[in-house]
């Protein structure tokens, strides 16, 4: 053949080139839809500070920690002071990199299916080289864990009526738990606690780190699951608390005020 071929037939290069005969596009399409819905909602929610997000003992986790009075500018929401942390954490998370790598950037859209972008540099250049800062977002995320748990405990304590329990309290606990699982199953954490060692048995210190690494590794195997579960749940909790706060539904609880 006269012209030099980069790949030989039956293959060809180019977007969606494949010999697969199954419905490979379903998965990226679903992931794309889910990412759009959930992250879209969270973005919008962060700006909806005029739509009540707090009632009694409950504070939407999107606005945790609580560092706000009332702001009136439409473009500024107290959530923004906080959200860059978790947002950056998820954006640079190894799992979400997979999720949007396949669905948004379609490189590749599915295994053995041609990439969308004709040229590809991966994470060797700006902007994706920034993925390498993931561990700094992890440090920030780790700060959030106790804050979320404090919020969850506060969910059992109404400022006026004192201790009690409601459905919202449980949602806040589950939310904190899932976010903890997600954070503690992080790949960077796994590396930092022990993955970077070459010899696990060489000292008591290393043996201890090996034990922690083993726990994190076990969680890490389900990182994808926790990534989705915690994402879905934070949205669910936010929606729930807002609905209660705005009187659309009633929260079954032991308090009498709402």
């Amino acid at each position: 053949m006269a012209q030099r071929q980069a790949v030989a037939p039956p293959h060809r290069l180019g977007f969606a080139a494949t010999l697969r005969r199954d419905t490979w596009w379903v998965e990226p399409a679903l992931v794309l839809a889910a990412l759009t819905v959930f992250f879209g909602y969270l973005t919008v929610s962060a700006f909806l500070d005029n739509w009540a997000f707090e009632i009694g003992p409950y504070l939407s986790p999107v606005f945790e920690p609580k560092l706000h009075g009332v702001y009136s500018q439409w473009w500024f929401s107290p959530a923004l002071l906080i959200l860059w942390g978790p947002a950056g954490f998820r954006l640079t998370c190894y799992y979400y990199r997979l999720a949007y790598g396949r669905s948004v950037f379609m490189s590749p859209p599915a295994c053995a299916v041609g990439d969308l972008p004709p040229r590809y540099y991966g994470e060797t250049r700006f902007p994706f080289i920034l993925q390498n800062v993931h561990r700094y977002f992890l440090y920030v995320a780790l700060v959030f864990i106790p804050l979320l748990w404090i919020g969850a405990i506060r969910g059992f304590h109404d400022p006026d009526e004192g201790w009690g329990v409601g459905l919202g309290s449980f949602m806040l606990v589950i939310n904190a738990a899932l976010l903890s699982l997600y954070t503690f199953s992080c790949h960077s954490l796994r590396h930092l606690v022990g993955g970077g060692l070459d010899c696990f048995s060489c000292s008591l210190y290393n043996r201890t780190r090996h034990r922690i690494w083993s726990w994190v590794s076990r969680l890490n195997a389900n990182h994808r699951l926790y990534a989705w579960a915690s994402l879905v749940f934070i949205v669910a909790t936010d929606v729930y608390i807002r609905l209660v706060a705005n009187g659309h539904i009633t929260d079954p609880n032991t308090w009498s005020r709402f």
């Binding site: 997979l98 790598g101 396949r102 295994c111 540099y121 080289i129």
Partner: peptide, 14 residues
């Protein structure tokens, strides 16, 4: 060139 990998995991799948 480990940076070229965007962790999309097709290698693991196959």
């Amino acid at each position: 060139g480990v940076g070229f990998c965007n962790v999309t995991k097709c290698c693991t799948e196959v």
